[in-house]
Each structure stands twice: as C-alpha cells, then as structure tokens.
Design a protein around this nucleic acid. Structure first.
Length: 892
DNA sequence: GGCGTCACG
DNA sequence: ACGTACGTGACGCCC
C-alpha cells in the first residue's frame, strides 16, 4: 500500500477550535472545548483519509529564530487565554493515547517542523496532507502535498492543490511567501508594505513574480504606491523572511518519518482519557465505528451533448425524453453574465441528469426547434433544480422566456443554511459539500476589463459542470435544511418569495423624469449659492466634496477645534460639524451643502440615470442572499433608502408615480414591528400590555422609566425613551446610548438600568439569548432562521461584545424580516385568488408599496393591512398603517 | 479598491 | 481594560 502522511498544526487547530466552540467543561471544571473540536476533527480525518503516518506538531513555547531578527514578531497578540492553555497538556495526553506522534522543537514553530517533513515527502514522493488554520502554510503545497485549511471553526477544511492556489490567487505555492512579504500579516505582526493589501500585492506579483523583482522594478510603479514601496523596501524583505517556513530544521534522530507511522490507538489508555474528559459521544463513536463515512466524490465525468442548431433536433428530442424520465431531477444552469440581472448577458445553459448533460448556446433558445424546451422551462409542473434562479428568471423575462417550476435553488439554500457566508459562489458551495470541484467563474470568464466569454467548448464544459454540481449538491442541502429545522422556511417562504421578487423587479416603478429634473435645477441653484458663500467665508476655493481638503480648511486654516479623527485624518462627519456650529458661521452652510449635494448626486442624478428611456421606469434588484439577518437588500439602484426624514429630501418621492393613468400608489407599513416582536419573544408582560392597549410605546416607556403619568411626559422624555427603545433593539450598551443621547455614560447606564428594571422580561431575554448563543453557537428567528455567531466566546472583548449585541438584535430584526416576507407571499396569493390587477412594487423592510387601479383602491386599503397584520400570530397584535396618493410622497 | 460620508429601516 | 449602538448601498475622493 502507498504511504500517506497527515501532518497537523497542533497549535493552530487548537486555537481555531477554542474560538469556534461553545465553552465546554467537564465536571471537574476543566475546559474541554478546544480538545473536543480537535478530537472530532481528528477522528473525521482519520476515517476519511486513512493515513499511514500521522504527526501533530506543536510550537515550542519559547522565542523562535524569527524573534532574533525581529523582536516584534507575533507582538501585539492577545495572550493565550488560560481557558485554552490548560487544555494543551490534556490534549497531548490524549494524542499519546491515540499513539499519534507529537513533535516540538526548541527555537522553531510547528510550521517549520511540518515544512521540513513536507520537504522529505516531496523528496520521497509521498502523498501528504497538511491540516492547519494558517494560510502561510499554503507555501508548502506541491504535487505531493495538499494543504487543508480549517473553515467554520474546525469542522470543515478547504483543500488546496497547486492548481487551487493558481486558481484562487494566480500564484505558485512558493509565491505565497512573496504575497505575505508585500501585504504583511497583522496577526503575526508582520508589517509588509503599508497600504498594500491583497489586491495590490497580487497585482504586483502577477507582474513581477517575487518581492525582489518588485523592489528591483519600482521605477515602473506610479505615484504614492511607488513612494511607499521604495520607503518600505526593508520591511518587505524582512516580512518575506519572517513568512518563510524553515524547511531544514534539525530533527532529532527519533524524529524520523518512520517514527510517525500510525497503527491505531491504545484502547484502554484512550478510554481512560475520554472518560475523564467526559466525551461520551467520542467514546461511542470509537466503540462502534471502524470504517468511516463517505469521502469526497470522484471527479465528475460528464457525458456531454451540445445542442447548437436545428440540425441537432434529434439530440433535443433525446434531452426532452431524458427530462421526462429522470427521477432524481435535472440540474439547470443558465449563465447570465453581469451583476445586474436587468441587463445581464445570457450566454448559454446546461441541463444535467444522472446519465448525461446537455448544453445550448442561449441564442438557440430563441429558435423554433427548441420550442419543447421553452415549454418545459415555463411549465410549473416540471421541476427544476437551479442556481440563483431569481436572477436567471429575471434575466430570462427580459429575453421573453419564462422560467417556472423551480423546486430547489442551490444558492438560496446555501444562504438559508448560513446567511453570513460571504461567498455564495457555486465553486465554494460545491467544495463545502465535498463534491467534484467546479472551476470558479472568475477563472473561466476573467474579471473587470478582461471579462470575456471563452471558446464554446470551454464555456459548455463549464456550464455542464455547474449544472451537474447543482444536481449533486441539492439533495445534500435539502437534508441539511431538514436537520436544522429550516426546510419549511426555505420551501414555503424563501423559494416562493424569490419568484415574487423577480415579478416586482421586472414590473418596475414609474419615475417622472421631469419631476426629478425640476428638483435638480432647484438644488443646483441652492448649491451654487452655498458654494459661493462657503468659499467666501473660507477665504479660498477648495473641493468641498473632499473630506481631506475640508478638514484642512476647518481645522488648520480656520483653526476650529478638531475632536474626532479618522484613520486618514480629521473627521468632518455631521456629528463633528454639529458640535462646531457655534464656532463659525461656515459650519451650518457646509452641513446644508452636504445634505443638498447628497440629494443631487445620489438621488436626482443617480436615479435619472436609472430610468429606462422607453418605459419611464426604474427596475431595482432585490437581493435575497445578502443580509445576515434575513432582510432583503436593494441594488442598481437602491430603492430602500429614498429620503424621507427631511422635507427637502422627501420631495424625491414625488417622482415615484403609478405606471397607469388613474392608478394610485398605496403603501402600508408595520407600526413598531421590531418592538412588537421583542414583546412577543421576550414575553415581557409590561411591554405586551402596551401593545395590546395600542399605546404609544415611546410614551409608555417614558412613563415607566421616569415614573410619571402620561400627561407629564414631555417631548424630551419621549425622545430619550425612544432612543432607549432603539438601543434595546440594537443590543444596548451604555456607550452607544450615551453617544446617541449626548449624555454621559453613567447617565446612560442608569437609564438602561431603570428600563430593564421596568421591563424585566426584556432583561431576562437579553441575558438568556446570550447564554443560548454561547451554548449553541447560533441564534434563531421565530421561523427558525439561524445566524451563527462564531465570536460569541471570543477572548477579545470587542469581538465578543459585538457578537453579543448581534445575538440580541438578530432574532428581532430577523423575525421582523420573516414576518414581512410572509405578508408578501400571502398578499401575492390573495391578489391571484381575487384576480386583482394591483401590483406589489417595493418592499422597504417594514413597508410594502403597491400601485392599484381606481376600482380596487377601496378593497386594497382594507386587504393590505389585514394581510400584513395576519401574517403571523404573536402574543401582541401586529399593526399596519395604510396610506395612498398620486405618488409615493403623497402616500404618507 | 479603500475610505469617509450619508441615505434608509 | 475593553472603546460600539443593528442591518444595508451609493456617491465622490484619492490612490
């Protein structure tokens, strides 16, 4: 049998496990979470990989050779928390019972030991897997060596071959060192070159290859970048040196590769350690299991049939037959290139079943011979498994093709499974489910200016690979949704909603160009006056839109007192300017300028650019897979942040009008939905009572917090109470509240204490949700939507505090999002059942906007708030206020 | 591209 | 001691 080595970076994995896992202890009070995470990962690896040799390398706890050249190496790092330190000796004992070799070496880190063994592996051509949480180790990747980086704590790994590194970074493994040399690494206190991040560093390396070549060619760099690189040449060289793993460490005679051969654990010894740790599930697993669970799928071999023209009609028949007969469902991948689906370029599509895959250029879909396929696409009873079908359905609508009957969407499922996942690319999703790899779109199409559609053979292979991947991943995701209790949320809410959104987006909303232009010229006039006056008072002309120049004028030329700083200089935000107002007459003018300039650039000019010439409409794109809480977001343009708070800006809304004569804009918004949700989930009797009696919640809060009667509540008290209520929803802190109300932290603290004394149910909710988050690692909404909080047990106060506030806020904001989504699905159903012509146009988090024909207005005025209020039954009533008018401004 | 600023809920 | 309110997207500046 061929040897297979597995080399684990002990410190790195233990750290990752510690921060990712809830704080477990055994009954003796010993913390065990890092050991537990380490153990479950190790077991899975042993089962899946079946290595012949296993090593866990540890850092020796002393200064390494890296400190000799650079004393600050790994400086500024948080000290290892004692809850973790105490776990190392036990972990080592456990590994000993596993009979797994452990190496450490004075003066060297685990990296260097592993680096040396991988060198031997390369020389001896032994297949080797390195497991670590440290990206630096990617430099060790080779033909024989694969590096697995831990993800989501340690429960998953992402594996890198040289091809993967090429694909992700466009670099060879060895160039990872150069990458670190240029960009540095804050976690190890490696400086790199300031101002050079990953993007810039990669660009330079793609051009020059190494740090040395970059430094030798600074002449061809430009501007500030050139200056910075030249100034920090030595840092780059030193950083590269620090990032370089030492691959020739002097291993002791007993540290020869043969010493790490793995031939199974010492049963009694292991049982003993596991008993002390109280890892019963692990004990059971080892008692029962021999051969492990499934491994990564074999490379996908596709039986690929291209269908290009009417001459391929026979093949199309074959496809249609296959679509009829396939039982497990066909994967459908339609490629729409471009971020904005309203103007995406449809290039082709692929359909993949268990037996075969078929591809078509998009143009073929417009030809007569593909009619059967178009009918199949449009048939709601023919089930399709797709990817980003919201975007695809919308892009297809513009091309006159209907897509219906999507029974599963892999991207949407990935979002529901983990809404904080930053990349929902198919290539990444496929990786997480250990399915045959899919090349990234970027590697096939390029990006930016270099984006182009490749040769047909390459394109169709790619599309077929994706369709096949979609087909494979879908059932695995369905199982995961079921296991996590989110299948209902997915099937009955998110998937139907995606179809509704595509309809709203395609429908669009009419915007009157002339109205915006009138507003624009009025703004222009006022801006000119303001600019002239500001220049006059400043005694000079400068670019008012440049915070840098404005800062210089205010704080240097005019000598106003500077308070706040940003990373790059003086802060000039509205909060700072408002404080400065008493010092100079120029300040209010600048504030006013900012307000109007924002309106002009973002709303007047920005929206005018988005109006379609032919229809006079604006079509936004609601994104369903972005917000971590379950909210929607809106892009190209964002119609969820049209001004309303200030009258000057609110006028923008006059331009949003019905698309047919005689129709009306009808809007309804939930009143205090987040606080009502809080009242429900916290069960706070006092707050529930306020809503049941339909009281003004801020007034009620003021009465209770200040201990006064209703008529004693003045506007100031109500304002403070309102701020506290907001704070509660956001996961309150005295600092945040003091900042908002401009009071001291102590005063804010007393406020909060008062509040929580009156709303005791809220207090216990805030406490228990944090405990729940720490225990489970996630929080949920009323419909079971999860948000994972990996930092909830972090030793860093800031990270942990942020996670705690998120734990308090997400169930509230997320449940409110669930509720309005339910209302949208129900409302859409009603419109269909009642055969109404009214159209849903926009969703703005707690508001729905419709356009309605005259003869439906009375009915809709009743129906809409009814449906919204009945979306879900809470312990308090939901309330929706309805309004209407000739435009969105009038509907207030 | 990263940052500062500001629009919304 | 820590030094932030939650969630988004778009603009202009400056490199």
């Amino acid at each position: 049998m061929m040897d297979k080595w597995m080399l684990l970076d002990g410190n790195s994995i233990a750290y990752r496990a510690f921060f990712a896992m809830p704080p477990l202890t055994n009954s003796a009070g010993l913390h065990t979470n890092a050991i537990y995470g380490f153990t479950t990962m190790l077991l899975k690896l042993l089962e899946d990989e079946k290595p012949t040799h296993v090593l866990v390398a540890f850092d020796a706890g002393k200064a390494t050779f890296r400190h000799e050249g650079y004393a600050e190496y790994k400086g500024g790092r948080e000290k290892t928390p004692p809850e973790l330190s105490e776990q190392f000796p036990v972990l080592k004992e456990l590994l000993q019972a596993f009979q797994i070799a452990q190496f450490e070496l004075n003066g060297f880190e685990a990296d260097d030991i592993i680096g040396t063994l991988t060198r031997l592996a390369d020389e001896q051509k032994v297949e080797t897997l390195v497991v670590t949480g440290d990206k630096d180790m990617l430099q060790l990747v080779s033909e024989h060596v694969t590096v697995a980086l831990t993800r989501k704590g340690v429960s998953e790994q992402e594996r890198y071959s040289p091809a993967d590194i090429k694909e992700k970074y466009g670099l060879t493994p060895h160039q990872i060192i150069d990458l670190k040399g240029l960009m540095g690494d804050t976690s190890d206190n490696i400086p790199g070159i300031p101002g050079v991040g990953e993007k810039t560093a990669l660009k330079m390396l793609h051009e020059f290859g190494t740090v040395e070549e970059v430094l030798a060619n600074t002449a061809s760099l430009k501007g500030k970048m050139k200056e910075k690189v030249e100034q920090h040449k030595d840092d780059a060289v030193m950083s590269k040196k620090l990032a370089t793993i030492h691959r020739e460490v002097p291993l002791a005679p007993e540290q020869e590769p043969e010493a790490i051969r793995y031939s199974g654990f010492n049963g009694p010894a292991l049982a003993d350690v596991l008993r002390r740790l109280e890892f019963r599930s692990v004990q059971e697993r080892l008692g029962l299991s021999g051969e492990g669970s499934g491994s990564a799928g074999e490379a996908a071999e596709l039986n690929l049939t291209p269908i290009e023209s009417a001459e391929d009609a026979k093949k199309l028949d074959e496809l249609m037959k296959a679509l009829e007969e396939e039982e497990s469902g066909f994967g459908l991948y339609v490629e729409a290139i471009g971020e904005n689906p309203h103007q995406a370029e449809l290039v082709g599509l692929a359909l993949a079943g268990a037996e075969a895959a078929y591809t078509l250029p998009f143009a073929a879909l417009k030809e007569a011979f593909t009619e059967p396929l178009r009918s199949w696409l449009a048939d709601p009873n023919k089930k399709k498994i797709g990817f980003d079908t919201h975007k695809v359905e919308l892009a297809l609508k513009w091309a006159g093709i209907t897509l219906s009957g999507v029974s599963f969407d892999v991207q949407l499922a990935a979002y529901v499974i983990d809404p904080t996942e930053s990349s929902l690319l198919l290539s990444g999703i496929v990786h997480r489910y250990e399915q045959p790899a899919v090349p990234s779109d970027e590697s096939v199409y390029g990006k930016g200016a270099k984006l182009k559609v490749p040769a047909a053979a390459v394109l169709y292979q790619h599309l077929a690979t994706k369709a096949d991947a979609v087909r494979r991943v879908a059932p695995l995701q369905r199982d995961e949704l079921k296991e996590t209790g989110m299948l209902g949320l997915y099937d009955e809410l998110e998937l139907p909603l995606s179809v509704i959104l595509a309809g709203m987006e395609h429908q669009g909303i009419s915007v009157e160009k002339a109205e915006l232009e009138t507003l624009g010229s009025e703004l222009e006039r006022q801006l000119t006056t303001l600019v002239t006056e500001i220049y006059k008072q400043a005694g000079m002309e400068f670019n008012l839109n440049s915070p840098k120049q404005l800062g210089e004028v205010l704080f240097e030329k005019l000598g106003l007192p500077a308070r706040k700083k940003t990373k790059t200089g003086y802060s000039t935000d509205a909060e700072v300017l408002e404080e400065l107002a008493p010092y100079s007459e120029i300040v209010p003018l600048i504030l006013h300028y900012r307000t109007l300039a924002k309106l002009q650039s973002t709303y007047v000019e920005g929206l005018l650019k988005e109006i379609r010439e032919q229809t006079g409409k604006i079509h936004t794109y609601f994104r369903q897979t972005i917000a971590a809480t379950g909210r929607l977001s809106s892009q190209f343009p964002n119609l969820q942040n049209i001004p309303i708070r200030l009258e000057e800006g609110r006028k923008i809304r006059k331009a949003f009008v019905p698309s047919e004569p005689g129709w009306t804009i009808l809007a309804a918004d939930y009143s205090q939905i987040e606080l009502r949700v809080l009242a429900h989930i916290s069960g706070d009797e006092n707050m529930k009572e306020a809503f049941i009696k339909d009281m003004d919640i801020h007034t009620k809060t003021a009465m209770d917090v200040f201990g006064v009667t209703e008529d004693q509540v003045d506007s100031n008290m109500r304002r403070s109470a309102k701020a506290v209520n907001f704070g509660i929803v956001y996961g309150i802190s005295d600092f945040g509240l003091s900042n908002n109300l401009n009071i001291t932290r102590n005063e804010a603290g007393r406020f909060i204490e008062q509040y929580l004394g009156v709303f005791k149910g809220v207090k216990s909710f805030m406490d228990s949700i944090k405990v729940e988050a720490a225990k489970q690692g996630y929080v949920t909404t009323l419909l079971g939507r999860r948000r994972y909080l990996p930092d909830i047990n972090h030793s860093n106060f800031n990270k942990r505090s942020f996670a705690e506030r998120t734990a308090m806020n997400s169930p509230i904001q997320g449940t409110a999002a669930d509720i309005i989504k339910l209302a949208m699905v129900n409302m859409n159903k009603k419109l269909g059942e009642l055969k109404l012509r009214s159209r849903m146009l926009l969703q703005v988090h707690d508001e729905l906007v419709f356009e309605v024909p005259e003869d439906e207005l009375e009915q809709m005025k009743k129906l809409l708030p009814e449906v919204m209020e009945a979306a879900i039954k809470l312990d308090v009533p939901l309330k929706a206020d309805v309004s209407f008018g000739a435009n969105w401004y009038e509907a207030k």
